[in-house]
Write a protein that binds this DNA or RNA. Structure first.
Length: 568
RNA sequence: UGGCCAGUGGUGUAAUGGUAACACUCCAGAUUUUGGUUCUGUCAUUCUUGGUUCGACUCCAGGCUGGCCAACCA
């Protein structure tokens, strides 16, 4: 009995993902002196996105779970694409997410000399040669997945000549695209990666870290596995497309080092999110062609974009946890990400009242000159959060949607003759609708019940709806940036012939408008998060200042009424 | 006509030879000074065919479907 319940507990706790299972097996077998050491290896050629966040949480989470370490390593082997700006942005994002690489900030470029020496070892062993074919010739002779390749005429070059040519490549004696160093493996391998892959190419560009020291640069394939080896990485976790590269990485290490220790590469399926694109190439295009306002645009799936949108690290970590780790291709519902941020903000965000589409309300039986201060609860989910006062006076704004002259069934809000509660204030009843000559509603006249102060109902009278409001004379005008999904299609890449993902861009992904907020928000600072009751979560934009408050809509509240309305 | 990987509700992830679980979504209801939150309930013969077994999501074989691989990118 006792034993049984213990086992059950363990079963619930267990349920490891397949990578954790592999690690625990390795641990049980005493591999690598029981070390667990992972790394997050971004290329600094763009900003990190939510897919990288999944990888960061995975790598850092594994290190934490098994008392190990996680390195941050920049894969900077291509000076044509990489920039310091990206390095800085990446570091900020990883840190913000809560992953700590301590003092282990590394660069593949730290290992250029070692890699160069290793290339020489391969040449000396007869496993590499300098090839003078051009790009088209190489591609042609590489064959196809169904047709074997053919050998380069330079394949059997003498070792001494290879050594000499490779040295002269490094010395800058040759132009770009005239010579490369290739591994000599197997031109007929069914695995294309093994058909004499390129190790080094000539690139005469300044590198963001090594400056002009080098004019030959190792390919990613020749740098990655060895970098893992140098850093003592035990579990090298990457996405599925590198699965076919694994034999190549193992081949390099097998030829170059003789220790029993080798990094173990494990591949998992990258994150795909509906209504967005994730490839860096496309994100870069959106930025460069100004479809969005930079990498940190709140519509971008970048970590910095999500941050500016109002997402929290906790919500992103929860999301990473919920999407899970597996090897099958997936398309995660954007709704899951939205669930995660609502879940987090519901507990944390202070409540406030704001009116997006104002409708003027005159309380005809309320004193012209009076202002009352009513107590509003900061967060009903968190009693510690306290209260604040909201000014109430004769002329108010309510939401246009919260009044209908001829309401449909199940509409509980304000309408002629109907009574509702103004949150934290009074019950009001609508008596008159004032219109202009075009029959447009100008304002509505209501009476309030003084006995209902604070929104209470001393006689037990029920109202079906509570609506939000602001006092006209006390309200602050602010800018609301209403963000929505960037793409209209669930999978933006699925397009008609002749168009690409950009054809699916949502023209209404950003709507900027004025709104009125209660004076409590006057001193809100960049990054502060609020729930505008009954509307959405908002966060203060970095461009906001005392003269002009700017609120970014993070995510709307769930709207059951909108759903009912749509279904009928 | 190649190689590698993967197929479990609408979505994602579990169950690792003992009779399909959890989360999101959806739908229905309860509660509510946010049509929010919270709570309850409904939703699957595990791609397919055959085999092994007392017993198969799990093991084996064939088929089907999807993804990846032919950058001097990572």
């Amino acid at each position: 009995m006792e034993e049984n319940s213990l086992n059950e507990k363990e079963d619930i706790k267990k349920s490891l993902n397949f990578i954790e299972q592999i690690i625990e097996e390795d641990l049980q077998n005493g591999k690598n002196e029981n070390r667990v050491h992972t790394r997050f290896p971004p290329e600094p050629n763009g900003y990190l996105h939510i897919g990288h966040a999944k990888s960061i949480c995975l790598n850092y989470g594994l290190a934490k779970r098994y008392n190990g370490k996680m390195n941050l390593r920049f894969d900077d082997t291509n000076p044509a694409k990489e920039e310091t700006e990206y390095v800085e942005a990446i570091k900020e994002d990883v840190k913000w997410l809560g992953a700590d690489w301590e003092d282990r900030e590394f660069y593949a470029s730290d290992y250029f000399e070692q890699l160069y020496q290793w290339a020489i070892v391969l040449i000396k062993k007869g496993f590499a040669y300098v090839c003078e074919l051009n790009a088209e010739q190489i591609a042609e002779m590489k064959g196809t997945p169904t047709r074997p390749g053919t050998a380069s005429p330079y394949r059997e070059r003498a070792t001494e000549e290879n050594l000499m040519l490779f040295a002269r490549m490094r010395a800058g004696e040759f132009e770009e695209n005239t010579k490369i160093l290739r591994a000599k493996i197997d031109m007929e391998s069914p695995n294309m990666q093994m058909r004499d892959p390129i190790l080094y190419r000539i690139i005469k560009k300044e590198h963001h870290r090594t400056g002009n020291k080098w004019c030959i640069y190792p390919m990613y394939d020749f740098a990655h596995g060895q970098s893992d080896y140098i850093e003592g990485i035990t579990h090298s976790i990457c996405t599925l497309e590198f699965e076919v590269h694994r034999p190549l990485y193992n081949w390099f290490l097998e030829k170059l080092v003789k220790t029993p220790y080798k990094p173990r590469q494990i591949e998992f399926a990258r994150l795909n999110l509906s209504y967005t694109v994730m490839s860096k190439r496309k994100l870069l295009e959106l930025v460069q062609k100004n479809y969005v306002n930079g990498w940190t645009d709140p519509r971008m799936p970048t970590i910095s974009g999500l941050r500016r949108r109002g997402y929290t690290p906790e919500a992103i970590r929860m999301f990473a946890e919920k999407v899970g780790i597996a090897k099958r291709d997936n398309l995660i519902d954007l709704g899951l990400l939205e669930f995660c941020i609502r879940e987090d903000l519901n507990k944390k965000a202070q409540r406030a009242m704001a009116v997006m589409n104002p409708l003027k309300v005159v309380i005809t039986n309320y004193d012209d000159t009076l202002t009352e201060y009513l107590e509003a609860i900061n967060n009903p989910e968190d009693v510690e959060a306290g209260t604040h006062d909201v000014p109430f006076s004769k002329i108010l704004y309510i939401e246009q949607e919260d009044f209908m002259e001829t309401p449909p069934k199940k509409y509980f809000r304000l309408s002629p003759g109907n009574e509702v509660r103004l949150r934290y204030a009074y019950f009001i009843k609508c008596n008159e609708v004032v219109k202009d000559e075009n029959n447009q509603i100008l304002e509505i006249h209501c009476t309030y019940d003084p006995a209902s102060k604070g929104g209470k109902s001393p006689d037990g009278r029920k109202v079906k709806s509570t609506i939000h409001w602001v006092s006209q004379q006390h309200a602050i005008k602010a800018e609301a940036r209403l963000y929505d999904r960037l793409f209209l299609a669930e999978v933006p890449d699925k397009t008609e012939d002749g168009t690409d993902y950009k054809a699916n861009l949502n023209p209404d992904s950003l709507i900027i408008k004025d709104c009125y907020v209660e004076p409590y928000l006057r001193n809100a600072k960049s990054g502060d998060k609020f729930q505008f009751e009954r509307i959405a979560y908002f966060c203060v934009d970095p461009e906001s200042n005392e003269d002009k408050l700017i609120f970014n809509r993070t995510v709307t509240l769930k709207d059951t009424w909108a759903k009912i309305n749509n279904n009928e």
